[in-house]
């Protein structure tokens, strides 16, 4: 078995024994997504989105809009915390793996593989819980945007873990997705053109895709998904650079 495969399989076992992460995976989707659908008042609300390439305001049920927003918040929050835990635990010890002979790229591949696996599970569980109450108009576009925003937040969690300690990192990763997706990208709050700085946040492009493909019958946000993927790649390059610096033998 190659070093990368060994580090990946053992890394998966290690994360499966992280009971905090497993508990978050069970508790958060139900308490965030299911409750969002259950307690939100069933009234029509105006939602700004793209229809036939034009930004228009459409009326949609508040539970659907709230559900569409709470699903990526849940996934981004858990993925972000997973990335944070992964980096905090690995920061010192992965340097020892380098002394033992692991190449930085082998450790990075294994760790990113573990994060990707966690993100897939988190996204799957979040979307699965959402589907009980709500069917997006274009499920696979919605899932694609969910994956992009979750992986992006997972990587941001790793970056935060490289700089901050566990407690400060946890606060940051709890607050950031809430503010970004739950406030600055939420069409229930933002009824006009978003400020320029809101467009720089990680949730901007993916949430545009989710609002469009979740709540309207046409797909008008292909370009937004491309931008979201570009944003993800940028964060990935930055994270790889930081991780490489941590794990390479000097």
């Amino acid at each position: 078995m190659s070093r990368t495969t060994t580090a990946f399989t053992i890394g998966i076992k290690e994360q499966a024994r992280n009971y905090v992460l497993v508990a978050l995976l069970v508790v958060l989707p139900v308490s965030f997504i299911t409750l969002a659908f259950a307690v939100t008042q069933d009234v029509e609300m105006p939602v700004r989105t793209l229809v036939d390439g034009e930004t228009v305001t459409v009326m949609r049920g508040m539970p659907e809009v709230h559900g569409v927003i709470m699903t990526p918040i849940t996934s981004a929050l858990i993925a972000g915390l997973a990335g944070l835990f992964l980096m905090r635990e690995a920061k010192d010890t992965d340097g020892r793996l380098a002394v033992a002979g692991y190449r930085a790229r082998q450790v990075i591949t294994a760790r990113f593989g573990v994060l990707a696996a966690i993100t897939l599970i988190v996204t799957g569980v979040s979307v699965g819980v959402m589907l009980v109450d709500f069917q997006p108009e274009h499920l696979w576009w919605f899932v694609a945007a969910m994956l992009v925003v979750s992986v992006t937040y997972g990587l941001i969690g790793m970056l935060v873990g490289a700089v901050f300690d566990r407690l400060a990192g946890m606060w940051l990763m709890l607050i950031l997705p809430m503010l970004d997706i739950g406030l600055f990208q939420d069409p229930l709050f933002i009824q006009s053109e978003p400020e320029w700085w809101m467009k720089l946040l990680p949730g901007y492009w993916p949430v545009r895709v989710m609002v469009d493909t979740g709540l309207t019958t046409d797909v008008d946000t292909t370009l937004s998904l491309v931008w979201a993927t570009g944003y993800l790649l940028l964060v990935a390059v930055l994270t790889i650079g930081v991780y490489y610096r941590i794990t390479q033998e000097k």
Partner: peptide
Amino acid sequence: TVGWCPQEPLLYDRLTVGETFRLFGSGYG
């Protein structure tokens, strides 16, 4: 080849002793 025993044990808390040997042994080739 280098073997390093740091002052604070740098080990992965949730791995078993056997898994720890396997992980580092793989690194040593």
